[in-house]
Every structure is written in structure tokens, then in C-alpha cells.
Design a protein around this nucleic acid. Sequence first.
DNA 1: TCAAAAGTGTTTGACTTACACCCATGA
DNA 2: TCATGGGTGTAAGTCAAACACTTTTGA
Lengths: 234, 234
Amino acid sequence: MAQTRIVPHDRKAAARDWSHPPAPRLDVRVVLFTAADGALLLTLENHTGGLRLPAGAPLAAEPFDIAARRIARGSTALREQYLEQLYTLSLNDSDGWMIVVSYIALLSSTGLGPVAANGSSWHSVDNLPAVSAPDRMVIDYALVRLRAKLGYTTVAFHLLPPTFTLTELQGAYETILGHPLDKRNFRRRVIAAGILARTDAQRRMGSHRPAALYRFQSLDDREAYLTPPWAERA
Amino acid sequence: MAQTRIVPHDRKAAARDWSHPPAPRLDVRVVLFTAADGALLLTLENHTGGLRLPAGAPLAAEPFDIAARRIARGSTALREQYLEQLYTLSLNDSDGWMIVVSYIALLSSTGLGPVAANGSSWHSVDNLPAVSAPDRMVIDYALVRLRAKLGYTTVAFHLLPPTFTLTELQGAYETILGHPLDKRNFRRRVIAAGILARTDAQRRMGSHRPAALYRFQSLDDREAYLTPPWAERA
DNA sequence: TCAAAAGTGTTTGACTTACACCCATGA
DNA sequence: TCATGGGTGTAAGTCAAACACTTTTGA
């Protein structure tokens, strides 16, 4: 499905070829998330054969984290704020053996609406178009992991612009979790967590009281993320 | 360090060779944990050049989970109870480009002391011998993840034999966490969690009151594990 | 009868939840 | 002055932590 071919490919023959050390194709795929307008969005790219996750081969000996960042940057005008390895799959498709190393990236939304580049487009996670089976697996697991991580980390912050209102922050949580939260309890918790700093600025938007803008203190709560000690962030 | 060589290897030249699609070596490594005698143990194998994590190349198009299981079984007489992908690294060593896909495996202790096979031996995690840098990274991260997972999953059960006393279960937790727990609170929590079934059997060991033996109900709390939906377990 | 581990409850403080109204602003 | 989202407190219930003694057994 991912690739149109004229001549059917003999997978068994390809897998049976022991004449050389087997050389799988390597593919790094990135699920780029952002939140906008109450929806959790991810990037898909247009390709012959359909929509795909942003992907690419790593250069020789290039660390996967670097490759993933390169792919993320090539696929959006936004800058990824958080990058985390997801899973590595070894699979057989119509072109033979392929290794897929998958990543999650979180992007700050700009408030101007998400910006796409290079023929890529944003899709709400609750209304995704058809994608290849491996892409589907990767996306499904990315969602599981992202939702779970909200509970015990501060990842949601990476979906927001540098300053934001508490209502925007709450909206990001609700978007990812898919259910509403109590305003007072949410504010109490997030303030008590001590990771926010109130700025002097305010946002005036519409005919109502302006909202205080906050930013993060201490983006370096690496401990909580359960990522490896050597992993670079952003 | 992992490999002795006579002729120095020109890494840059190897990385610069674009004449063919680059073909990294693939290596699946498994950190095999078990708990015995109040210590958390892992398996290392004897190799020319020193001790190493159990490892091996995947067969062409073999899923990594299957390869990891094969490697785990080749390295211990015990049967792994839980297997989870840890991280995938792309690195340059003295032999060129290598991709390391790492796994954690948890083994039931038998009470008879852990059984080793194939020139492998058990080492307490708080007294590990020198290993290669990649092995060290993998082991460090495996410990971080294992300890963290204790908090929100029931993984510790997989380190125990099919039936066990509550004191043994508590000991496994204390071993992994590295600090003591309150007996009454531990029992209350673990019973309240509803994942244990008391058997009729008892264990009489020493001149004191015999302990009730328990076993697990519902090992299938896949949800809590934050592993991918497609991952097979054990 | 002694040593050694098994087993058992209660109290206290902390945290979580549910819930409703006034405030500041621009139109 | 009205519509709109921003901002605030309290009471009830649930959960986690600290803490010590009695029971059963074999030697």
C-alpha cells in the first residue's frame, strides 16, 4: 500500500538471500504532535501512494536522535520542543526487510494555527486518514504513550507557546486526554506543582477580563520523563 | 574495548563509504534481571575481551521481540517472564556503525538460586564489573526504567516464582527499590490491589509460623505497562 | 520456653474531588 | 449594561504513612 509496484516482489526470496550479511532498510519515523483549536494534531506527508508519517533514512552512523530531529525539522516550520524515542520495529514489507525506529515529537503551537511545510499537513487524531499498517501502529502507540505521560510528567507544556494562559494550558490537557477538567482543581494542582512562573504580561482577547500569562520554570525535570540518561531533549 | 584489533580501523573512511547503502551491524542486547537473596541480579556473558550483556544479531526480517527472546533463552536456564523493549542506539565503535536494540527481561527466581548457562554468570547490580560503554548505558537505563515501573505497574511479580509469600514479594520490591518498606502498609496495598490470590498451601521454613503462599490473578494488566499494543508478553 | 518470622488496626495528615459565584473587560 | 471568559475557596471523602504487639511454629 505504501508503494505502488508493477512487478510483484518475492518477499521470501529476499529474506532467503544469505549471500551477504542481510542489510535491512532503515527508516526513522516521527510522529509530530501539536495542539490547536481544541484538537490534537499530527503531521502527515503527501507521497505517491498516500499519506505517510514524516520519515527518512539515517545517515551512516548518525545517532537516531539526530536523524529524528532532522526529519522533524524538515517537515514543519515549527521547531520541535520535545523528542522521545518510541519503539523500534523489524518488519517485512513488499520491499523486504525494514527497520523502523519511531519517535514522538511535540511542537509548540503558535496560536497562528500550525504551520506546515514540504507538502505536509496536519490531521486531528480523532479523524485520521488511512495510512500504512506500520504507520498506524506507530501512531496508535504514540497516542497511548503521550496520554499516559501526561499523568506523571509535564510534557503537555511542550505543546504550548513560550507564554500561555492557564486556560490554554488546561485546554491542552483536555485535548490530549479527551475529557474536561475542573478549572479550580486544575489551577490549584498546576500552581502547587511549582513549575509555572507568572509573567507580568497579560493577554487581552475579546471583551472580557484579560488573562495572566505564565511560562515554565525548570524545563529540566528529566527525572520524571523516564527517558534514558543520555537522551538529549529538544 | 569490546573487541581486540591489531590494525587500527579507520572509522571515518567506513562512515564515508557511500558506494553501497550503508549496512550497520545489528545487535540485540538483553538485560536479564532476577532477584535473589536480597539482591537484584543481572546476567553477563564471558567473552574474549571481557564481560558482556547477552546479545546477538537478529535473523533477516526477524522481529526484534523474537530475537530478544531467543537471546534470553540462550543465556539462562530460566524462562523469561517479561520482555520489554528498552531503547535503540545507533553508534560508532571500533568496527564501524552498529545499531543496538536493547531489551529488559525479568526472570522468576527459583529459590534454588539463579541458574546460569553458556558461560554466563549473575552479578548484583550494586557491584557490577566493568563492561563496554554501550552495555553500561543500556544497564543504567534498564535500572532507571525498572525502578520507575515498579511504582505504576506490577512488574515485580515477574521476578518471583509462581507461588510466593508476601514477605518474598515485599523483599523483591525492596531489592529493586533499594529501600525498606513498611510491612503492614505493603500488605494492605498489595491485597487491596486485588491482583493476588491466596492459595491453600503454606510454606514452612525454619522454626516459626508458616507463611501463606500467594499467586497472581490476572497477569494481563497490559494497560498499565505502557508497552505497545502489539507487543507480546512473556 | 525461646527465637524467629507471620500476621494484624488505628490514627493522622495530605491530597483529591465536587461544587458556584464575583471580577474585569470590550462591545 | 451585557456578554464573555478570568479568577477564586471550602467542605467531604479518600488515600498514604507512621506506628507495636500477638500468633504460630520448630528447635
